[in-house]
Design a protein around this nucleic acid. Structure first.
Lengths: 221, 221, 221, 221
DNA sequence: AATGAATGAGGCTTCATTCAT
DNA sequence: CATGAATGAAGCCTCATTCAT
């Protein structure tokens, strides 16, 4: 019965830290607040997980481990690349909804150039990116999909969903500011996921080329 | 060489602040560092621009004003919606390249739920989003494009490009970690822009539906 | 010698703060100086008492609580209103001597219009003023005293003693500057208290009216 | 016509400084605020009156010069000591009403032990105190008044009126807090002056001693 | 004389981290 | 393991004063 409590302390701290780092960013997060949120004494926090940086690393590891597992699960066994794409997008949407701090932390981590990203997490990236890469490889082998850079496809999905998910508060404020324009800005994340899967699916499907611009226009210097 | 010095002090401060806020985030940015970077005494910074919050507001305003102007310019006069889409994506890529702090600040601003986003900047959003909205409306009126939620299209473009742009350092680190897999992770942002424009263009073009998944798969609970 | 150390840290801080606020006023007092005087690290001061404003509030509360208790004690059980008046004046004199910062803080607090006076201290005022009020009420019920506004009597005593007490350094300087006039300017506060009690006592005693001016002269506009 | 403006600048600055020093105290007063209030550039203020300390000295000199003149005027030609006392008290009340910053500055100056009081002002004190001293001397020579320490009488009047005048905001707050007790706390300063003149007059009038306490009670140690 | 723009010094407050118990 | 109490290092901001024009 003591093991439960012992395990729980570190778990509680990680949970609290995820919340605080997600809400305030690395620099803005306060160790005090994490300790309070976790119901732990500040010195106890150091005893259990070490300093702020180590704590952040642990948060990242835990988070990306969950992501990798979830995405691998989502596409597992789906032969049809279009179904797999949709499953992948939906799984991301579901993750971002269940773990609202995840997209925030991902965004901030990228904004900082991965300054605080520990080497250990790169392994999780390999698993995560692998899902998209294999999906595309299989589709191309099938002849169902045309060739495309996996990293483009991956980040188109992930980036769009991160930003759509994070922009919610701003979209709400913006909607109030432009009520006159009759816009729908509050559509659920899942709808965005379906839209994206459709976009990518149609965009990558083999078949006669749709009309696309041939030259890249130059913008003002 | 004196022309350089004629840049107004406030301009120099804003420039330095953009750099510092972009690099460190709002919480992590230090007023001291901004002052030093701008070659101004700390008190002088307050004399010219006010406190940290006002400084951040000014940075955002300046930035988003540039964005709105650039995007409006980019699509101006392009009748063909596909050409306009490509121009829009390319203009975004060009902006993110010329102003590397822009995507960072956008990402962090969204990650924080727009906590520091001043009301005044919402007006610039209207202009920015307006570009995509009108592009789509015109294309649909033409019969060239099928209906789609403008906010989805807009954030698919913007979100993908922000994240692709920001992920560069991480992609580099990741590439070194997975050299064995023979991946191209360092393709330029412009290529991503072209890819996205094509994806969206084909995805929204009128014509026989490509094969897409019909049901949304449920992921593990 | 260890007993001295057993004084609680908060006590030491309050003591030091009383000294510093009394000597320099609220605006002039420096948190650094208080911490140094209390032998505490500056951050420790915040840990124990909070910020400058809360510190000042605590000082006021502690001070006025002492005042109320002392004055209530001083008149307790004195039936004769004249004896009670004298006891009240003497108790005030004694307080101002024992706590030299008390009259200074009272004066500055009033000079600032009570800007920093917390609501919580008003309750102590009620007790303090109550002493004078009940003393007068009893005397009037006895027929020993003529009617008079309690607030006038109260502030005549308190105001005179505050100002006499505070003016000491100035009276000393002034005395040196006018040695030729043969003045006694250095009489002890207690004598002033006795004088005032006599003045008020004779002034309020029932009996044939002394000669007093009938009309209030008008001064130059 | 230029002289008028020149004179006025220094005058305006002194006026503004009196207001600011009275409202905020020496330490709390800001040179910026004085300059703004006077409609002068900050550097101009230094050009005209020197630094903060010199400015404060000038304010004190101007103020106490007015006080001395007014009080001398008020008692001039009044033979009857009781009438003179009343005139003195009324003149003080009038001064404190016309120059609300005067009692504030006096109180803060005394609270600081005259730390900022320039030697030059002591001469004004001699004139001011002289009014009370001569009034009493004449009354005692007449046989109308019994002997009394002039400094006691002087500070009883001045101290009571300063404190009554300054306590107004606190009395108002206090009155709201104790509405149930049916107290009059808002009586005008002039009434206090008349009350005090009567108190001192009856207290010092020759005649059979009223009943007063014989022994000074000791308060708790 | 007047003014916009510095600037050094210092004040208030917070925070990550450690220590003694 | 747990906790209250330090503590040094910074960070934000203000202010009196001066200088160049």
């Amino acid at each position: 019965m003591d093991e439960v409590t012992t395990v729980t302390v570190s778990e509680r701290i990680l949970e609290a830290a995820t919340e605080e780092f997600g809400r305030e960013g690395y620099a803005g997060a306060k160790v005090d607040a994490i300790a309070r949120r976790a119901g732990v004494n500040k010195a106890g926090l150091y005893y259990h997980v070490g300093n702020k940086e180590q704590l952040y690393e642990a948060v990242l590891r835990r988070l990306f481990d969950q992501v990798a597992g979830t995405l691998e699960n989502a596409v597992a066994g789906r032969e049809d690349p279009f179904a797999a794409l949709t499953a992948l997008a939906a799984a991301l949407a579901s993750l971002f909804t269940r773990l609202p701090m995840l997209p925030r932390i991902m965004a901030m981590e990228m904004a900082s150039g991965g300054a605080n990203m520990p080497e250990a997490v790169l392994g999780e990236f390999r698993r995560i990116f692998g899902v998209t890469r294999e999906l595309l490889a299989r589709g191309q082998a099938d002849g169902a999909l045309r060739p495309a850079e996996p990293i483009f496809v991956h980040l188109a999905l992930v980036g769009s969903l991160i930003v759509y998910s994070l922009s919610e508060p701003l979209r709400q404020r913006f909607a109030r500011a432009v009520e006159d324009m009759g816009l729908r800005l509050d559509l659920p994340l899942t709808d965005m996921a379906i839209f994206l899967a459709g976009l990518v699916g149609r965009g990558l499907a083999q078949g006669p080329d749709a009309v696309v611009a041939k030259e890249v226009p130059r913008d003002d210097p």
